[in-house]
Amino acid sequence: MRPIELKWQDGEVYLIDRVRFAERAPARVSAILPIRYTCLIGGREKYLYFEPEKMQWFVEVASA
């Protein structure tokens, strides 16, 4: 499984150029045993998480 693009809540779509790593790592938001995908999006590294139990993708959002 490889993520291809990320659709943000405002509808904008970001292409994922490359997945650098996929490894198990805890998130700072609610998730048990998620897989962390280190992705290159627009030349910048971003974490994308997948929680197999819930079959759910998510990203961490910096709180305001």
Partner: peptide, 8 residues
């Protein structure tokens, strides 16, 4: 500890 993963 597991619950704190679920509820940070």
């Amino acid at each position: 500890s597991v619950e704190m993963l679920r509820h940070p």
